[in-house]
Simulated scan of single mutants.
Amino acid sequence: MPVDPTEWTVHGTRRAYESPWVNVDLDDVEIPGGPRFEHHVLRFPRASTGAVVIDGDRVLLLWRNRFTTGVWGWEIPAGWSDDGEDPADAVAREIREETGYHAATITPLISYSPMTGISDQWYRVFLATDVRHEGEPEAAEASRVEWLPVGDLPKLIASGQITDGPSLTALAVYLSSPR
């Protein structure tokens, strides 16, 4: 198969930082007809998953603070897959840990790359339905876990109460999908 003339050439990779959460690499790249330089790349050792949890006309969200941005906001349940764990099983586990609910039905909604220019991360989002309460969520996961009307999502997004990229993407896809 011929090489696309607009495809960058990677001459090598040097790991600058490594952890169980994220790796930072410096890739020696060359742009076609352009310069050769080091490009920072974030590589994630585990798959990311999230879920839009729906019960009728309600969506289950977590009210969280993110110290990195200093922002409080509503988010979908989300987390990482453990080594060898199926993403659907991982998101079911995350829903239980973060909300105290069990979802009997989990179906794929969308897979996407949230930071294509600087990261290899893939995010898999599922639709979770047929839920039942099983217990209390893990205390460190969220300040509040609440069922909110699906119809309020556009207002929550417009007012800046949902700013988390994975949550925005997941909820926008859900809202734009035929139901």
Rank of each mutant, 00 (worst) to 15 (best):
V29R: 12
G33Q: 10
R93V: 05
N65W: 13
H133Q: 14
I31E: 12
T69Y: 00
R36T: 13
G117P: 06
V53S: 00
D27V: 11
V125T: 15
G50R: 02
G84I: 08
E38N: 13
A104G: 06
L42M: 13
H133A: 14
G33K: 02
N23C: 14
P137F: 11
W63Q: 08
A158P: 05
V71Y: 00
D28H: 12
G79T: 01
P108D: 10
R43Y: 05
T68C: 08
I110F: 01
L156E: 00
P20E: 03
Y17V: 11
T116W: 08
H40Q: 13
A139M: 09
A16D: 14
E85D: 13
A140C: 09
V22H: 10
R14V: 04
H40C: 13
D55M: 04
T129M: 07
D89L: 12
W80G: 06
P45D: 10
R96D: 03
G135I: 03
G56E: 12
N23W: 15
R124E: 12
F44Q: 02
V52H: 08
T99G: 09
A139W: 04
P35K: 14
D25G: 11
M115Y: 02
W72H: 06
W21Q: 07
I54M: 00
A78R: 07
L127S: 10
E30N: 05
E38W: 15
T116P: 11
R15F: 15
L156I: 04
D27Q: 15
G34K: 09
E85A: 03
L42N: 01
A92Q: 06
L153G: 08
S111R: 06
A142E: 03
T49K: 02
L153M: 10
L60W: 06
A88I: 10
T129Q: 06
L127V: 05
R132V: 11
V131L: 06
G50Y: 06
I31R: 14
L148A: 01
G73W: 08
I76V: 11
A103G: 02
V29Y: 07
L127Y: 01
T13R: 15
D27A: 12
E146T: 10
A92F: 01
P137M: 10
L60E: 03
D28S: 09
D152M: 15
G100Q: 08
G33E: 07
D55A: 09
Y17M: 14
M115N: 05
G135H: 01
A142C: 03
I54K: 03
G70R: 02
L153F: 12
R15P: 15
L42K: 10
E18H: 13
G50A: 10
Y123I: 06
L26Y: 15
E30Y: 06
A51M: 02
A92H: 05
G84P: 05
A142H: 07
A51H: 00
W63Y: 07
G79A: 04
